[in-house]
């Protein structure tokens, strides 16, 4: 493994996690997705580029580079999906909780005596 891989892999992973946890916005999600799509199409149209890039990064063959990029891209999509599910979960909880509290108001024991 070359030094650059040691550095880039954790950097990428941490960057993705930080992004998904803190800085996600719909626009950024889409821009990143478009960027990945454009890069993918360009590399498909110019396969020589992958060889060139692979050598620059010390990866080996162009196909290896494509594999790593694909995996990264997929990982990113999965993380954003997960983040969206978390958001949905939170909203669902909010609805159910609000309903539970509202219904309790109709039929429960009297107030605690001596409450300030």
């Amino acid at each position: 493994m070359k030094l650059i891989q040691f550095i880039l892999i954790p950097v990428f992973v941490i960057a993705m996690l930080i992004y998904v946890r803190r800085f996600r916005t719909l626009l950024l999600d889409r821009l990143i997705a478009i960027l990945i799509g454009v890069v993918a199409i360009l590399l498909v149209l110019n396969p020589d580029w992958t060889g060139f890039l692979a050598r620059e990064f010390g990866v080996g063959r162009g196909t290896d580079l494509m594999l790593y990029l694909s995996v990264t891209g997929l990982g990113f999509f999965c993380l954003t999906l997960w983040a969206k599910l978390q958001d949905m979960d939170a909203r669902l909880t909010q609805i159910i909780r609000t309903q539970a509290l509202a219904e309790s108001a109709k039929s429960s024991l009297p107030e605690v005596p001596g409450k300030e």
Binding site: A100, E103, S104, K115
Partner: peptide
């Protein structure tokens, strides 16, 4: 005091709902 989640959310959610309610009752 009886409260009900119409859909199962989990023990954590049930505790929080209960705590929110209890605090509102003083």
């Amino acid at each position: 005091y009886a409260l009900r989640h119409r859909v199962n959310l989990g023990q954590g959610a049930a505790l929080q709902t209960g705590m929110t309610f209890a605090l509102s009752k003083g």
